[in-house]
Design a protein around this nucleic acid. Structure first.
Lengths: 214, 214
DNA sequence: GTCTATAAATGGATAGAC
DNA sequence: GTCTATCCATTTATAGAC
């Protein structure tokens, strides 16, 4: 794993060809893992599958990542980083947008990622992946950063009266996380009656407006 | 497996002691499977664990159920039957209750089952369990029965104006199914800040009333 | 039907040549 | 770093005695 290259972007300009190849290879690995995690989850995903999808030998995988857990954790970290990048873009483009709309935009983005088959299903409580993630600094830091930023929007939205103030902010936060993995999207996709955009609009509606008539 | 005994309750009065023991044993097995499915999912659950929890040898399990898939399917069928029994009780006790309240009562029940650690997490799309369930008549019949009854309440609630008529009934149905497995309940339980009743009330609120202020 | 023991297959991980 | 070949633990499933 070329950790240094990712942690010091200032040095990324003068990477040798060999290093660029290495990074590209690892990126392909992480992409395959990401897709497989989204498709079947950590337990059902096998390292053999990953190797087959990338097109390299299994032993080669273990030269890049020391274990299946580290493999999966790398994919989770990358998804988290994508989320952070999206939050960056949201906060950069328009500071005037109401917090509730920012939250809706985040929820929409997570659903787009899921329908693209790139949102890993969350591991069950006692999975070995859980333990690996809680001791992974990059993941925990990313999760806390995202939670802090969403938390600020949540409290702001409640202060402005657009978000139900009776709900504890943590409940709202967890609800948004859960919607990112909501199986309803897959169910409706399987029904084959609606486009991805229609599906997302429906789930966004049930999430923010509820099932009852307003 | 004593299928006949479950399908002909009229005969359950004159079961021999031996048959009662057999049924009790199978019930203990299915309960253990149910709990393990809820705790860690189908892939992570091992037959060894089931045998250990029931307190019998693994080979004995296979005298009752021919495969791990059949084992899990039996647990899924029992949960479905419990849901049907709950719907029976709802429809028997008060025909005057508005459809929207019936739906809320169903959602509350599924969340209680989940917090009790008895709601199996749904298998991923391409799990071997999925295939086993789609060819399991008892499960498919139960699912269709439940869907039909919920569907009737959904359309009735939309006709009476209490449920958002802009939502396709199938989207509402899937949303209710998804809430039965909503990870938000586990998240909030893990936070340790709220009682089970508070958690259920919050999730019910977000489900039916949405995150936005009304 | 229950047990012990074991088969058969899978999957995570590694050795060692190139 | 990549490969082939292999190790070893786990897991599903079965054989056969009682």
């Amino acid at each position: 794993m070329v950790i240094a290259a990712q942690k010091t972007p200032s040095a990324s300009a003068k990477l040798s060809f060999r290093e660029q190849m290495h990074i590209a290879r690892e990126d392909a690995i992480v992409s395959a893992v990401n897709r497989l995690l989204a498709e079947k989850g950590f337990e059902a995903m096998t390292v053999d599958e990953v190797a087959a999808e990338v097109g390299i030998a299994k032993a080669s995988l273990y030269k890049h990542f020391p274990s299946k857990e580290d493999l999966a954790a790398a994919a989770m970290v990358r998804v988290m980083n994508r989320a952070q990048a999206f939050l960056d873009s949201l906060q950069a483009q328009d500071v005037q947008t109401p917090p509730i709309e920012q939250l809706r935009a985040v929820a929409r983005w997570t659903m787009q990622v899921q329908l693209a088959g790139e949102m890993p299903s969350l591991p069950s409580e006692n999975s070995t992946l859980r333990a690996a993630l809680t001791t992974n600094k990059a993941y925990v830091d990313g999760l806390m950063d995202v939670s802090d930023r969403l938390g600020a929007w949540i409290t702001a939205a409640q202060a402005s009266g657009s978000l139900n103030p009776a709900l504890p902010p943590i409940a709202v936060l967890y609800t948004l996380y859960a919607r990112a993995c909501d199986p309803v999207l897959g169910f409706l996709k399987g029904a084959g009656l609606y486009t991805d955009e229609q599906i997302i609009d429906m789930v966004l509606s049930t999430c923010f407006d509820g099932l009852r008539t307003r």
